[in-house]
Amino acid sequence: MNEQEWLACVNHVAGGEYPIPRGMISNYNDWRCRSTVGRALYWMDEVEAAMRVLATVLDVEPDMEDAPEMGLSEAEHKVLCLRDVAEIVWKLAHNEDAALNYLGQAYELSRAYKHPFRSASRGEMFYRRLAILREVGKEEQAVQEAAVMLDMEAESGGINPYRYFAYKFLAEHEHNNGDDAKASQLFAEAFKYYPVSAAGERDLAKAAAAVDPAERYKAYAFCSTIQYKPWEELPPAIIRRDL
């Protein structure tokens, strides 16, 4: 990517509906700027331009000890880039192997990062893999992989995005098979591992009380669209400094 192309991308992102300050993104030599610009272009549906920018980040090795109190860590930048590249490859070429490869890299990197991951759920890349397998007619394989994930995370209690998304996928699978009663049971199990606020508890109670299985499933599915609380809370020491 030459300087003229880069400046055109920066100008587009800085002048969009939700502009990013130019000073935060203009340094091409800072790969985090390229990460931000590329992902912003993808969000703006400038898919081919996004791919050109994000491709420059694929070989970057992030500092796995980088854990800023504000903003994205290097690991998060790289994970989100890999995630978006996977979606672009899938959208443009419908290339299953390439999309799953990039999602796999994002998944492994997010699991390896030992500090708070605040920009997304670490389980999203796993869930997206299952969804792509379903789209290409490999739903039974996806069901088996979800079951393996549940076994692998069986000893983990509390908030757990891997168990949540595995159960969510299985719930959708049963819904697609016409069994909303079983799908609702699986969704109820999924929410045991979801970060839920007091408002979320009320929403889930309403969902559980729905008599009709189809309405109950619909209510649980609606709850799954709401991020009631962050997946990962900031450490108390950091919260105190921010206050």
Rank of each mutant, 00 (worst) to 15 (best):
A146C: 05
M125T: 12
E96H: 11
G16H: 10
F117C: 09
H175P: 04
E153M: 13
W90I: 02
H115S: 11
R83Q: 14
L58N: 09
I226S: 03
V148S: 11
R202G: 06
L72M: 15
A98Y: 05
H173V: 06
N27K: 13
E189A: 13
A183G: 10
L92G: 02
Y113S: 02
Y167D: 07
Y107G: 06
G137V: 11
R129V: 06
E189H: 08
K168Y: 07
R129N: 09
T56K: 06
C81T: 09
M1K: 02
A67P: 00
N95V: 02
V60I: 10
T225Q: 14
I20A: 01
K91Q: 13
E215P: 03
V60T: 08
E76W: 04
Y217V: 04
K168W: 05
I20S: 00
L133M: 14
E172I: 09
C9H: 08
P195G: 07
G16D: 10
Q4D: 09
A49R: 12
L109H: 04
L130I: 02
I159K: 08
E233W: 04
P116Y: 09
G137K: 10
G200L: 06
E232W: 03
N101L: 10
R32H: 06
V196Y: 06
M51Q: 15
L100K: 04
G157A: 11
R83H: 14
G200H: 08
V57C: 15
G200R: 10
A198W: 01
D203L: 10
L100R: 09
G15I: 05
H115W: 06
L243F: 10
E124W: 08
R111A: 09
L109V: 01
Y113E: 05
S156D: 13
R83A: 09
A50G: 15
G200E: 05
S224E: 04
D151L: 13
F187Q: 12
Y162A: 10
M125A: 14
A55K: 14
C33A: 12
Q227C: 06
R32V: 02
H173P: 02
Q105F: 07
I239A: 12
L133I: 08
V37Y: 00
D63S: 03
H173C: 13
L103P: 07
M125S: 12
A40R: 10
Y107R: 15
W31N: 02
K114Y: 04
K206P: 00
D180V: 00
I159Y: 03
L150W: 07
M64E: 12
D203W: 06
W90Y: 08
E172H: 15
R32Q: 11
A142Q: 00
D45R: 15
L92T: 09
L133A: 05
I25T: 01
E232I: 11
Y113N: 07
F117E: 09
E215T: 13
M24Q: 13
L186C: 02
N101S: 12
M152E: 15
E140R: 12
A219G: 10
L103N: 01
E61M: 06
S184N: 04
A205P: 01
F126H: 11
N95E: 12
R202C: 09
L92N: 11
M70K: 13
L92S: 00
D45H: 15
N160L: 05
A14V: 10
R22V: 06
Q227V: 06
N177G: 15
L204K: 07
F126G: 05
R39D: 02
S119G: 09
G157Q: 12
A154W: 12
E135V: 07
P230C: 02
V60Q: 07
I238S: 05
P230A: 03
W231K: 04
